[in-house]
């Protein structure tokens, strides 16, 4: 090749003028960039309107809750009369003394009861799913868990009402018991039935998220443990569960959030009374009806035409909003501690 290597670098101005433009736009037009900007704006707009929808939901709920909050502060959360207050508000336009404590207690009790069942069962099931089950059984189990998470809550309610509630009534409630405690109806619709039904509604969250977290623990941990002569169980308990713990906690937090928010199934099986279970009655407390925050919104929904009831129901909604914000922050914190790789199911659950 006979060309001078550096010839091209300093071009004379006449050569420069002779360049045929290949990729510059001498006319200064934007070409497609105009459309690009337009599209980006449109997409940003749809993202921003999603954001606006959120703000609108939150602002509206608090706005409607405001009349009660302004008059009563947070005192309505600590007072213990709900059903009577709703009745009274129907005919007394100046009545604002609502008491949501029974609903808080009902929500807390059903969710705690459900967690007491769902956490051990769910974690055990997750251990089988991620550590023990052969592929075939694992697929069946995973399908069952997915199916359980897809079953609409009204079906849980229906099965609960026609299977669990009669079971509770037949097994635990005797005529003698009914005569002794006449102040609350003991008909099977109860805290116990509610907790049992809720437990199986929230189990899929515990199983899916925990199993995912356990699967993301490196194989080498397990080999290491087994090579040291540890039993299968010790390997799982000492080497697999600890690194997966943040994931398991996140699963439990998500399950809790789901439990707190469940309305329809709880309205169907937990009983139609805003009642604080009487702990002094021992086990009978579990057989008493309760009502949760979420199910109160469904069951007292017809009271929306009354200003005070509407405001009270929106105050319940605001409480649920605050709780769900707190739980999503907690779940987020738990996930950020889960440094290992997590799969799709985990991400999708939050």
């Amino acid at each position: 090749m006979s060309y001078d290597r550096m010839e091209g670098t300093d071009m004379s101005s006449s050569q420069e003028a002779a360049i045929r433009l290949r990729f510059s736009r001498a006319d200064g037009s934007l070409g497609r960039l105009g459309t690009e900007k337009l599209v980006e704006r449109a997409l940003a707009f749809s993202a921003a309107s999603s954001g606006a929808a959120i703000l609108f939901v939150i602002a509206f709920v608090f706005m409607k809750a405001y009349p009660l909050l302004a008059r009563d502060g947070l005192a309505w959360l600590a007072r213990a009369d709900w059903d009577g207050a709703v009745m009274e508000a129907w005919w007394n336009p100046d009545f604002w003394r609502f008491g949501a404590l029974p609903l808080l207690v009902g929500t807390f009790a059903t969710t705690t009861g459900a967690l007491m069942v769902a956490v051990p069962l769910g974690v055990g099931c997750a251990i089988i799913l991620s550590e023990v089950a052969p592929p075939g059984l694992g697929r069946i189990l995973a399908t069952a868990v997915r199916l359980l998470s897809g079953v609409p809550s009204v079906i849980f309610g229906l099965v609960g009402l026609t299977v669990v509630v009669p079971f509770v009534q037949k097994t635990f409630i005797t005529e003698e018991l009914g005569l002794r405690y006449v102040d609350v109806p003991l008909d099977g619709q109860s805290l116990l039935a509610g907790s049992l039904v809720l437990a199986f509604m929230i189990i899929p969250f515990v199983v899916a998220v925990s199993a995912d977290a356990m699967r993301s623990v490196p194989e080498s941990y397990r080999f290491g443990g087994l090579a040291l002569g540890m039993t299968k169980w010790r390997t799982i308990a000492k080497l697999v569960i600890p690194p997966a713990l943040p994931g398991i906690v996140a699963g439990i937090v998500l399950a809790t959030a789901r439990g707190i928010g469940e309305a329809i199934a709880m309205a169907m099986v937990a009983g139609g009374l805003a009642n604080i279970p009487h702990l002094d009655r021992g086990f009978v407390a579990f057989l008493e009806p309760v009502r949760t925050l979420a199910s109160a919104i469904v069951e007292n929904g017809e009271g929306m035409s009354v200003l005070q009831v509407e405001s009270a129901l929106f105050s319940l909604g605001a409480t649920l909003l605050v709780v769900s914000v707190v739980t999503s922050i907690l779940a987020r914190a738990a996930f950020s501690r889960l440094r290992t790789k997590t799969g799709l199911a985990t991400e999708r659950a939050i």
Binding site: A47, S50, G51, I54, V61, A263, M304, L320, S328
Partner: peptide, 26 residues
């Protein structure tokens, strides 16, 4: 702004459907 949208979507995802129902009705 974008971080706010992301956080907002996360919060909205956790809100129970009954709250949406009642909100929508109102």
């Amino acid at each position: 702004g974008t971080r706010a949208i992301r956080l907002g979507l996360e919060v909205l995802a956790g809100v129970p459907s009954v709250v949406f129902g009642f909100w929508g009705l109102a």
